[in-house]
C-alpha cells in the first residue's frame, strides 16, 4: 500500500511509518466520530424504540424505521407544539431586541475613540463572567414587583442582558473590517452618523448580522435557567422547561422524551450547520482573534 500523504521528502523506510500513521489517524478520527456522533444516534434510536423495547426486551442497537408510525401519537401526547411556539416567541423577541441594541453600540465601539471606551468594553465583556444564578436572585425580586414573572416579555428582557453583548462583539468585529474610506465620502456629503450606519455600513455587514441573529435567536431558544425560575405557568413554558419536566416527578417514556428533544434540537442543528462558517467567523473576529 502506498500512502497518499506527502512522502516525497521522507527518507527510505518512511512508507511503513506513513502507513502506520495513516492507520493511527483513521483510528483517531473514528473515535472522534463515535464520541461526537453516538449520543445523537442514540437519541434517534431511542425515539424509534417501542416501550416494550425500552423497558422490557432491551433497546436494539440498529434503527428500526418501522416504528416511525409511533411518532405522531407520541407528539400528540405532550404539549410539545405549544412549548415550541413559546420558545419561538421568546427566541424571536430576544433576537430582535438584542440586534437592535447591539448594532449602534458595536458601531460606536468600532469607529470612535471616546472617554470611557475601556469601561464600556469591560461592561460588555463582564457579562460573560457573571453567573446568571447570581443575577437571577435580585432579578426575581425586581420582576415580582413589576408583574414580569410568568411573562414572556420579562424573560426576553433577562435573556437580552446576557446575549446582547455577544452580538456586540460579533458586529464590532464585522464593522472593524469595513474600510473607512467608504464612509468618508458620505460624511463629506453631509450624511449623519446614523444615516451612514443604516444605509452604508448595515448592508455591508448583513452576513454578520445574520450570523449574530442565529446565535442570539438560539441562545433564546436554548435558555433554561431564567425560564425555569420566572415561568411557573405550564402554558407559558418554553420547550427547555417542558423537556426538563420530563425528568421530574411524572414518568414519561424515554422514546417520547427523546423524540421531543430531537424535534426541539432539529432547528438549532440545521441552522448551526448551515451557517457554521459565518458563526465561527463572527465569534472569532469578535472575541477570539485568530
Amino acid at each position: 500500500m502506498t500512502a497518499t500523504t506527502p512522502t516525497r521528502m521522507r527518507p527510505t523506510g518512511a512508507h511503513a511509518i506513513s502507513a502506520g500513521r495513516t492507520l493511527g489517524r483513521i483510528l483517531a478520527i473514528g473515535l472522534l466520530v463515535v464520541f461526537a456522533g453516538f449520543p445523537v444516534y442514540w437519541m434517534i434510536n431511542t425515539s424509534l424504540s417501542t416501550n416494550a423495547d425500552l423497558y422490557g426486551t432491551g433497546q436494539t442497537f440498529l434503527l428500526d424505521l418501522t416504528n416511525v408510525t409511533g411518532w405522531w401519537p407520541m407528539i400528540e401526547g405532550v404539549p410539545l407544539l405549544l412549548w415550541l411556539r413559546n420558545s419561538a416567541v421568546i427566541a424571536s423577541g430576544t433576537a430582535l431586541l438584542s440586534l437592535f441594541l447591539a448594532l449602534s453600540a458595536a458601531y460606536a465601539l468600532s469607529r470612535f475613540r471616546f472617554y470611557g471606551r475601556g469601561i464600556v468594553g469591560f461592561l460588555f465583556f463582564s457579562t460573560q463572567m457573571l453567573p446568571e444564578a447570581l443575577i437571577i436572585v435580585p432579578l426575581y425580586a425586581l420582576f415580582a414587583g413589576y408583574g414580569l414573572l410568568n411573562n414572556h416579555g420579562g424573560l426576553i428582557l433577562a435573556n437580552v442582558a446576557f446575549v446582547m453583548p455577544v452580538a456586540v462583539f460579533i458586529l464590532k468585529g464585522a464593522i472593524d473590517k469595513v474600510p473607512h474610506e467608504i464612509e468618508e465620502a458620505a460624511r463629506i456629503d453631509g450624511c449623519s452618523r446614523g444615516r451612514i450606519l443604516l444605509s452604508i455600513v448595515l448592508p455591508l455587514v448583513l452576513p454578520s448580522i445574520a450570523a449574530a441573529a442565529i446565535i442570539v435567536f438560539f441562545d433564546g431558544w436554548n435558555e433554561f435557567l431564567f425560564a425555569n425560575t420566572f415561568i411557573s405557568n405550564a402554558d407559558l413554558w418554553p420547550a427547555t422547561v417542558g423537556l426538563s419536566s420530563f425528568l421530574g416527578e411524572f414518568f414519561t417514556p424515554m422514546n417520547q422524551v427523546m423524540l421531543c428533544a430531537m424535534l426541539f434540537a432539529l432547528p438549532a442543528i440545521a441552522f448551526f450547520l448551515w451557517a457554521q462558517r459565518g458563526i465561527v467567523a463572527g465569534l472569532t473576529s469578535g472575541s477570539v482573534k485568530g
Binding site: 472522534l32 466520530v33 461526537a36 456522533g37 449520543p39 445523537v40 437519541m43 438560539f218 431558544w221 436554548n222 433554561f224 420547550a239 427547555t240 423537556l243 426538563s244 428533544a261 430531537m262 426541539f264 434540537a265 438549532a268 442543528i269 441552522f271 448551526f272 450547520l273 457554521q276
Partner: peptide, 12 residues
C-alpha cells in the same frame, strides 16, 4: 458530525 454537539441545545 463533530460539530453537531455544539449545535444541540444543552437541555437535549
Amino acid at each position: 458530525i463533530a460539530t453537531i454537539p455544539w449545535a444541540i441545545p444543552t437541555i437535549a
